[in-house]
Amino acid sequence: MAALEMVPVVSGSRDGRFAKILIWTGGTILVVVALAAIFAPLLSSWGPKEIDPNGTLAAPGGEHLLGSDGNGMDVWSRVLHAARIDLGIAICAVALAVVVGTLLGMLAGYLGGWVDDGLMRIVDIFQAFPTFILALAVSALLGGGFVNLVITIAAVNAPAYARLVRAEVRTLREMQYIDAAKTSGASTIGIMWRHLLPNSLTPVRVIAPLNCGWAMLTLAGLSFLGLGVTVPTAEWGSMISLGTSDVVAGRWWTSVPPGLALLVCVLGFSLLGEGLQERAEARRR
């Protein structure tokens, strides 16, 4: 579970064919997952919270396609419905982190001085922790629920975006066209909005998909520990957690399917992110 980090890919291929394959595979996976999330009620005959009174821990096949869990809920239906909340929280959290981080990074980078010093010291404190530990601490203190989880995951990631955008803005600030804009009377806000923002977003665009994958893993990890989304709401991490005791008893179907779904979805984001990064590098050459 690697957090936000710019590990250069340095592709072997020069024509960007591999990048294209990566982007397309990742994109396809994500579209399929999104469709499964949207049409979940049509794809399963049981509701995600519906309890089958005479079928707890039923084996796959028969009435339950992927079996049922210890509460008698249908695993297949829950795996599908969980995509909604997992994707929803992850994407909202990353979007919020990007907005807040970019704003702070631009302010720090362009204004400099005490604004920069103050903001960067706060970022230092945030980055004195491994990100998952930070997420764990914040969510234990804030509590669960959709909004709180979005805030938790966004708060943990925003500092990295702030740092990224700040570095970008500091190089852009010295460019001649910024001077030109200044001499022609553009306001500070105008320069930030029209010139700095679009140009400093380039690295953000590459990193955000990777970050979405990481956000999903974090969310599932928190729920696994009982801190995120809790039963009966369908969520992959809490489903895996519920199946922990079944695994020791050799029953695979309560926790393997949600984990596989999570893996596939995160892999979609990773492939997309890696492809975008490789394409960005190929363009730079």
Binding site: M1, A2, G213, L217, A220, G221, F224, G237, I240, G243, T244, V247, V248, A249, G250, W252, S255, V256, P258, G259, L262, L263, V266, L267, F269, S270, L271, E274
Partner: peptide, 28 residues
Amino acid sequence: LFGNSIPEFWLGLVLILVGYATLGWFPA
């Protein structure tokens, strides 16, 4: 890429399922 995308806690459970519950090679 797989390694980057895999939830570790789930991987741990899968290893328990295989190494302990099925094969019995490793302790509980």
